[in-house]
Design a protein around this nucleic acid. Structure first.
Length: 501
RNA sequence: GCGCCGUUAGCUCAAUAGGCAGAGCAGCUGGCUCUUAACCAGCGGGUUCGGGGUUCGAGUCCCUGACGGCGCACCA
């Protein structure tokens, strides 16, 4: 994209179409016409005009005089009668007609010479229908409200994926679907909040600038505070703060906000992503799974009016009813045709991986091996919504051990359309065990494991005051949008991170 | 981080074997009082991503850098 600095370039250096529009602006100003007026006497929105005249026959005069505004999306100028399609923010369009008889020679020729595709205009006149039946304003006066200096992207060809992301504003102007996704996202977020509020949850906002990084296994971004003269981390998860809330008596708590992870970026990962986490005292990973299912179903219902959603490629995806539930060890055993349990040795699992031609890091221990093999053999093939329960205890340092099955943690992952949408736990609340787990993590961190958590003494102190038995879960909000729409993560995030041009 | 592919007019794209850089839309001029991606006639618009090289001649071949897409690795 050519970014033209405001003053460092003479008009001669501008691309032709930008120069033409700049010349028009200069000419208007020189002639005493303000191309960017402060206000205009708008009396109706385009939607109001449409709503007031739903079913007029062709060639009707209503006697209704309105002043309306919009961006010029199409122009069809003939000798003595000009047509323009105006569009306002919600996508509503309305036609403006300018005839020589109504506006006069000077005004009509000014329209033809001054107004370009993409300009914002105000038009005043009578609401009519054209001879072809199109609802229109027969203009008696008009005025530019904002002169565009850049031509619109072609409306009939999709912008390239890169242009859409880099210039989302232009994407939003020309592509109704882009605007629809923004509104769908807003509806989903509102539905989530409504679902929580309806169940007595309290929304909180916890720090995104943190002095320690913890709450998940992920590489953090670092930054620096001048005032405190210390390095800080952008948070990778709100978990440890939300648990402090539960300790403090905010026993049904949720947060929707950003996490930052200094890791890969692809069609389902973004360095900056929206996270929903929720914790409920006296819930377990069973009840929190049920809540999670309801959240997703209620979001689908609110955004699309149905729990069977139509994805971007036109296929339907059914989120209704009960969802499948499998356990990690059983489903892995089934896929392998041989029993895998928490007692199965790492040596044995390495042998299994090799026999299957699955490459794994030879340093991996039991827990990570089981997860790796499971993802390869089972997870990647899950399409219908499925809870995968009972993870290896070793890889879940913040999770309570299973109440009856040794070596297993009360943790589930929710898979939807082949990717991980959410994860839930019966939270570990024993401060002594928690200290052991986090100490082990911090030893890993000190040993160079960039994903391992640091020892958060303040968090442990909070737990030592006593945290009630609690169920908790986290859901990727961008991924929820992906699940509901079938779009990639860069389409569900309005302004995803891109390198500067 | 590695591999493959790509970057050409405002936008979306084409360009034979290395031989005059094109189209549609958009823009400009003129015409047209019922158009719907209007139409008709004419015209203009390019650092072919940047730098270097080979060649009589490079959008095209080679080297290098930037940016992007996809795959792999990491991750949610």
């Amino acid at each position: 994209m050519s970014d033209i600095p405001e003053h460092s370039q003479s008009d001669d250096d501008l691309p032709e179409q930008l120069r033409v529009r700049r010349d028009k602006r200069d000419r208007l100003l020189a002639g005493g016409t303000e191309p960017y007026p402060v206000e205009v006497p708008r009396t109706h929105t385009l939607a109001q005009v449409r709503a007031a005249h739903p079913d007029l026959p062709a060639d009707t005069q209503t006697g209704d005089i309105v002043g309306v505004t919009g961006r010029v999306m199409f122009m069809r100028n003939t000798g003595k009668l000009c047509f323009a399609t105006l569009r306002e923010g919600d996508g509503t369009e309305l036609q403006a007609m300018l005839s020589l008889a109504n506006v006069g020679e000077e005004s009509l020729s000014a329209w033809k010479s001054d107004v370009d595709l993409g300009d914002h205009v105000f038009v005043h006149g009578e609401v009519i229908t054209s001879k072809r039946g199109e609802l229109s304003v027969m203009v008696d006066a008009w005025q530019l409200t904002s002169k565009a200096m850049r031509p619109l992207p072609v409306a009939h060809k999709e912008m390239s994926e890169e242009s859409r992301v880099r210039q989302r504003y232009a994407d939003l102007i020309v592509r109704p679907r882009a605007r629809e996704v923004v509104r769908t996202r807003a509806n989903v977020l509102r539905a989530l909040r409504d679902s929580f509020h309806g169940r007595g949850f309290t929304e909180v906002e916890t720090p995104m600038l943190q002095t320690l990084h913890g709450g998940a296994s992920a590489r953090p971004f670092t930054t620096h505070s001048n005032a405190f003269d210390m390095d800080l981390y952008l948070r990778i998860a709100p978990e440890l703060y939300l648990k402090r809330c539960v300790v403090g008596g905010i026993e049904k708590v949720f947060e929707i906000n950003r996490n930052f992870r200094n890791e890969g970026s692809d069609s389902s990962h973004s360095p900056e992503f929206a996270m929903l986490e929720y914790y409920e005292a006296y819930a377990t990973y069973d009840t929190i799974a049920d809540l999670t299912k309801q959240l997703v179903q209620e979001a689908a219902e609110a955004a699309f009016g149905s729990q069977i959603v139509t994805l971007h490629d036109g296929t339907e995806y059914d989120l209704s009813g009960e969802w499948a539930s499998i356990t990690m060890y059983e489903s892995l055993s089934e896929a392998l045709g041989e029993e895998v349990t928490p007692e199965t040795t790492a040596e044995k699992l390495h042998a299994v991986a090799e026999a299957r031609g699955i490459e794994v890091d030879p340093k991996l221990t039991h827990g990570k091996l089981v997860e790796e093999l499971w993802e390869e053999l089972v997870g990647d093939h899950l399409y219908a919504p499925t809870f995968v329960r009972d993870f290896p205890e070793e890889t879940s340092p913040l999770t309570r051990a299973h109440r009856t099955k040794p070596g297993i943690a009360e943790k589930w992952d929710l898979y939807v359309r082949g990717f991980e949408l959410a994860t839930g736990y019966s939270e570990l609340v024993d401060p002594v065990i928690e200290r052991e787990r986090l100490t082990a993590q911090s030893t890993l961190a000190a040993g160079g494991d960039e994903e391992a958590m640091q020892l958060d003494e303040d968090f442990l102190r909070a737990l030592e005051y006593g945290m009630p038995p609690t169920g908790g879960a986290g859901m990727g909000v961008d991924r929820l949008l992906m699940a509901l729409t079938g779009l990639g993560i860069r389409e569900t995030i309005l302004f995803p991170l891109v390198r500067p041009e």
